[in-house]
Amino acid sequence: MSKPTALSIGIQRGGLEIKQFMRQRESVVFTMLFPLILLAIFGSVFSDSIAEGVTFSQYFVAGMVASGLVNTGFQQLAIMIPVERDFGTLKRLRGTPMPASSYFIGKAILVTVSMLIQVILLLAAGVAFFGVDLPASANKWFTLFALVVLGSACSTILGIAFSNVPKSGRGASAVVSPVVIILQFFSGVFFIFTSLPAWMQQVAAIFPLKWMTQGMRSVFLPDSFAAREVAGNWETTRTFAIIGAWLIVGLIWAMRSFKWERS
């Protein structure tokens, strides 16, 4: 028989990860419905338009998709992997011929697939109940898709890398969640980014969430809004470059620091 490859095992692991995820009903509900609930709350509280024909929901949907990337990838994995470490899942895998990269690929598949489902649900609910307009051109749809895929990969690998920070599965949520929430506030997920203090904007610009959110605004807002961005345009190239750079940083960080056992 032939030797399985890292990619073929990774794809099998992706299927297995999705199966396990779907069987944990609470986490499915939390991951898939939480953005919808937030959209419902914000959409009801801020029912005004922020400009002619653009509701706050429209602005907020961009933030929700972007922060979905962080929640589904970074936050979920940085909490889930320490638990797998505590349970001996990782040590057992370490003792098999499975390459480490297959494990990473499996996680990336889990995150990307749940992200795509989440976006579909969010857009469907947004259109049905909150008057959200879908991306206006094929170009914008493509940007959306590319951002979701690249953003999922980036968020996955940073979650894997950060999973070494919590000391145990039990404490992981307390370590990871504040990081995510602060990042969301700084990055203009809940507020209009340019109305944040300048220092906050500058701090946020170091991290990928700000760029994911800005990228999503370029997808969901009319092009006339580009002028309201810090740079006066969408900075699409820079957006992809920075997310890609974080992907590489995360890859190096994860490869170097990943632990299969709780030390």
Binding site: E84, F87, G88, T89, R92, G95
Partner: peptide, 13 residues
């Protein structure tokens, strides 16, 4: 083949 001491993984499979 390695059979480790007690593990609690793969509960959902």
């Amino acid at each position: 083949g390695i059979v480790l001491q007690s593990t609690h993984d793969a509960g959902d499979l």
